[in-house]
Simulated assay, not measured.
Amino acid sequence: MTDSPYTDLERPPLSQAALRRALVRPGGLWTSITVVERTGSTNADLAAQAREGAREGAVLVAEHQVAGRGRLGRTWTAPPRSGLTFSMLLRPPVPAARQGWVTLLVALAAASAVRRVSEVDARLKWPNDLLAGERKLAGVLAERADDAVVVGMGLNVSLRAGELPVPAATSLTLEQAGNADRDPLLRAVLREVESHYREWVAAGGDADASGLRAAYLAGCATVGRQVRVELPGERILRGTATGVDVAGHLVVRTEDGAEETLSAGDVVHVRPGE
């Protein structure tokens, strides 16, 4: 049973069996796909499995997540079956200093899948958001779990205007998507993640050698923009985002001409005159 007010025709359930047939194969990255009706947090659940030795490539999908988390402790909520809420377990065999690229890699893969399947021009906001215009379409959250990385995503698919968690959010449906079917979209995201991940790992986590940094920069809406970055300790940094370095950090040229490299921060795109 589901507590969604919408029918299966409007918001159909995902088929665990169909997803497994399509994505789990010998030699592939994805080793298991589990779809649950309801959970608190797919990241928390999968992190617990990772600490118990779960294999790389486990994917956990929730039709309804009731205690989802975003960056900086923010909550992420959506009605049942209105989006894609899932987490992936990765054990990247690359130097720790290069593993910060995992978040950017997953965001890039998701944006590519959204553009291809849904025909919505999804762009990347450093470090972990997908935007349609200036509205948030999806968020990515990567967390350590011993020697593993658990990467969660929440992608708004069929939310109506009155269901959006914040006014600055949007959904594929609100963006007039050519296809808002969650099944092919999830398959496309996971296939794109696998492709980028394989190339990145084969290059030893080198974002330049694998082409990851160039691809990210090409799809990034932050680079070239005036930004305001809220940093730990209530510090505010203003300037122009000029690039993303080899470690995946944002490079900002401040108003006094200095360059700062940021590994974390809450970025706001500033419109001219603001």
Rank of each mutant, 00 (worst) to 15 (best):
D3W: 03
P5C: 08
P5G: 09
P5D: 07
T7P: 13
A17N: 09
A22K: 05
L23K: 02
L23S: 05
G28P: 04
I33R: 01
R38T: 11
T39R: 13
S41P: 01
S41R: 09
N43G: 07
N43S: 10
A44N: 07
D45S: 13
A47S: 08
E52K: 13
G53V: 14
A54D: 06
G57K: 01
A58S: 14
L60S: 09
Q65T: 02
V66D: 13
G68I: 04
G73E: 06
T75W: 10
W76G: 06
P79A: 03
P79Y: 08
P80Q: 05
P80I: 02
P80C: 00
S82Y: 11
L84T: 06
S87Y: 10
M88L: 15
L90G: 02
P92V: 11
A96I: 07
A97K: 08
R98I: 14
W101M: 02
T103R: 04
S112H: 09
V114G: 12
R115H: 05
E119Y: 14
G133F: 12
E134M: 11
K136Y: 10
V151Q: 06
L159R: 07
G162A: 13
L164N: 06
L164Q: 13
P165V: 01
A168F: 06
L172S: 05
L174S: 08
Q176R: 15
D181M: 12
R182C: 12
P184V: 10
L185Y: 01
L186W: 11
R187Y: 01
R187M: 13
E192Q: 15
V193G: 00
H196A: 10
V201N: 08
G204L: 06
A209N: 10
G211W: 14
L212T: 00
A215W: 11
Y216H: 14
A218M: 11
C220Q: 09
G224S: 01
G224Q: 10
R225K: 10
V229H: 04
L231Q: 12
E234K: 13
I236F: 04
A241M: 13
G248I: 07
G248R: 07
G248H: 03
L250D: 00
R253S: 12
D256A: 11
A258T: 15
A258S: 15
E260S: 12
A264K: 06
R271E: 12
E274K: 11
